[in-house]
């Protein structure tokens, strides 16, 4: 779903997200996507999207890199493994975190106009 274009850092600020890895805060974000099945996400997530998920293992970072997503938002306080955080910093993937459930994060992204 298309949203009003902004930077990853701006989106995180507007939604009140906790910053886990700020590897490329000026990265463009122009749409949203939600999903936990990595093969599904990799095949369908649009370029430059904010990807909302509860998956938090190191493969999430690989998928985000390969699918060119703008940032990863971990919902329901999903915790990123340390090796995943290290990898995200190395490859330039922004990761944010929130206690909100996936649906609520998506609703907020959609409603920001």
């Amino acid at each position: 779903m298309q949203i009003k274009e902004c930077t990853a850092a701006r989106l995180a600020e507007e939604l009140g997200l906790e910053t886990v890895v700020s590897a490329d805060p000026e990265r463009r974000v122009c749409c949203g996507y939600a999903g936990d099945l990595l093969s599904w996400v990799m095949g369908r997530a649009p370029v430059d999207c904010a990807w909302v998920t509860v998956m938090s293992n190191v493969n999430v970072v690989a998928v985000a890199t390969l699918a060119d997503v703008g940032c990863v938002i971990l919902a329901e306080n999903a915790e990123l493994d340390e090796d995943a955080a290290e990898k995200a910093r190395a490859v330039g993937i922004n990761v944010y975190r929130t206690a909100m459930p996936v649906f609520e994060v998506c609703a907020k992204i959609a409603n920001r106009g």
């Binding site: 599904w40 990799m42 998956m55």
Partner: peptide
Amino acid sequence: LGFGAGMGLPN
């Protein structure tokens, strides 16, 4: 881990 959904080869 989020894999094994039978989408690898189709993808």
